[in-house]
Design a binder for these strands. Structure first.
Length: 119
DNA sequence: GCCTTGACGTTAG
DNA sequence: ACTAACGCCAAGG
């Protein structure tokens, strides 16, 4: 085991990603910031890159995590265009081939703390 | 054990 | 408004 804190960070990332609502997207930086690691955006991406559904025991909607500009930077790690296809299925509006309308669909992880999470 | 790489983001020019 | 550079830190070579 490397460092317990590192593993915990990854697990927290998976938990947050698992809570992203259908039809909404968030960014690596937003998740990192929510976890208190402002400069850990890169680690969030790394966590998603190295995770396996078997280790977790469940699937997470990693396709709903984009960079701060709404670009599908991780599309190469998905099967074909499945990342874009999934987002389109959820009604996500694209402003470019691989860029979604962030302003419209952005979901802030901080909303998890809201008493009324109907955003 | 050093060097490079990267699902990122901010700042400087 | 656009581009370049840097900071971040875990893995893999």
């Amino acid at each position: 085991m490397t460092k317990a804190s590192t593993r915990d960070f990854y697990n927290r990332v998976y938990e947050v990603v698992a809570e992203i609502p259908f039809g909404r997207v968030t960014s690596y930086g937003a998740i990192a910031g929510y976890l208190g690691v402002r400069s850990g955006a890169r680690m969030v991406g790394y966590a998603l890159n190295t995770y396996t559904a078997e280790d977790l025991g469940f699937e997470i909607p990693a396709h709903r995590v984009l960079n701060r500009l709404g670009q599908l930077t991780g599309r190469a790690y998905f099967e074909g265009d499945s990342m874009r296809e999934r987002l389109e299925q959820e009604g996500i509006e694209f402003i470019e081939e691989y860029t979604v309308n962030m302003e419209k669909h952005f979901w802030d992880p901080a909303l998890l703390n809201e008493t009324d999470p109907k955003n």
